[in-house]
C-alpha cells in the first residue's frame, strides 16, 4: 500500500509539473488518512507543503432519503481551510466502485468555489461504474464481482493497513 501511495505521489508531481497550486482533499472516512499520507509524500518529494483537507459527502448522497428505514449515516465535519478557487484539487478516496460517492464529492467541492481542475486518486478501483467517472491515479485495479465486498483498513482508523476482499456471505 505504501509503495502505491509513493508511486501515486510521484505521478501527481509529474503530471502537474510540481505541486504549486495543488491541494489534496480526502473523502471521509478513509480517504482522509490516505490524503494525509500522499500530502506528506508530496512534501518529501517537492520540498514544500500542500494544503490538505477533509470532505464529508453525507449531505450530498443520492440515496439518503430513499430508504425509508435504515441507519442514518452520521454527518461528520468538512474541513477545507483554504481557498479552492483556481487550484488543482486532488480528490482522494479508498475504493472506486459505482462512482456515486465521487459524484457527490464533486458537487460538494464545487460548493466551495471553482477549482481549475479536479483529479481523482483511489487506492483500489474495483470496477462496476454506474456513472461516467474515471480515476486519474489508481493504486491497484481489482476486478471483483458485485457480490463481493472490498474493505480498506488503515493504520490511522483501524490500527493496521490491509485490503480485504470478502465473498458474499449470503
Amino acid at each position: 500500500m505504501s509503495r502505491s501511495l509513493v508511486r501515486i505521489a510521484h505521478e501527481i508531481v509529474e503530471r502537474n509539473r510540481g505541486v504549486d497550486d495543488l491541494a489534496i482533499v480526502g473523502i471521509r472516512e478513509r480517504g482522509v488518512p490516505l490524503a494525509r499520507r500522499i500530502s506528506a509524500e508530496l512534501e518529501r518529494i517537492a520540498g514544500k507543503g500542500v494544503p490538505t483537507g477533509a470532505l464529508d459527502i453525507t449531505l450530498y448522497r443520492d440515496d439518503l432519503m430513499r430508504q425509508a428505514v435504515g441507519p442514518q449515516p452520521l454527518v461528520r465535519s468538512t474541513d477545507i481551510l483554504f481557498d479552492i478557487d483556481n487550484r488543482v484539487i486532488v480528490l482522494v478516496d479508498d475504493v472506486l466502485y459505482t462512482g456515486r460517492t465521487i459524484r457527490a464529492a464533486l458537487d460538494a467541492l464545487i460548493d466551495f468555489g471553482r477549482p481549475r481542475a479536479i483529479q481523482l486518486v483511489v487506492l483500489v478501483d474495483r470496477g462496476h461504474r454506474e456513472l461516467p467517472i474515471k480515476a486519474d491515479y489508481v493504486g491497484k485495479n481489482v476486478p471483483t464481482s458485485r457480490r463481493e465486498s472490498i474493505q480498506v483498513r488503515l493504520q490511522e482508523v483501524d490500527g493496521h493497513d490491509e485490503v480485504v476482499i470478502q465473498p458474499d456471505e449470503q
Binding site: L59, Y60, L64, M65, L74, V75, R76, D79, D107, D111
Partner: peptide
C-alpha cells in the same frame, strides 16, 4: 448527543461561500 454532534458538522456550512447543501 447525536443531535449535538450532527449540529457540530452542520455548523461549518454557515462559513462556506455557498451556504447550502442539497440534502432535503
Amino acid at each position: 448527543v447525536l443531535i449535538l454532534d450532527t449540529a457540530e458538522a452542520m455548523q461549518e456550512i454557515a462559513h462556506r461561500p455557498i451556504k447550502k447543501v442539497p440534502t432535503l
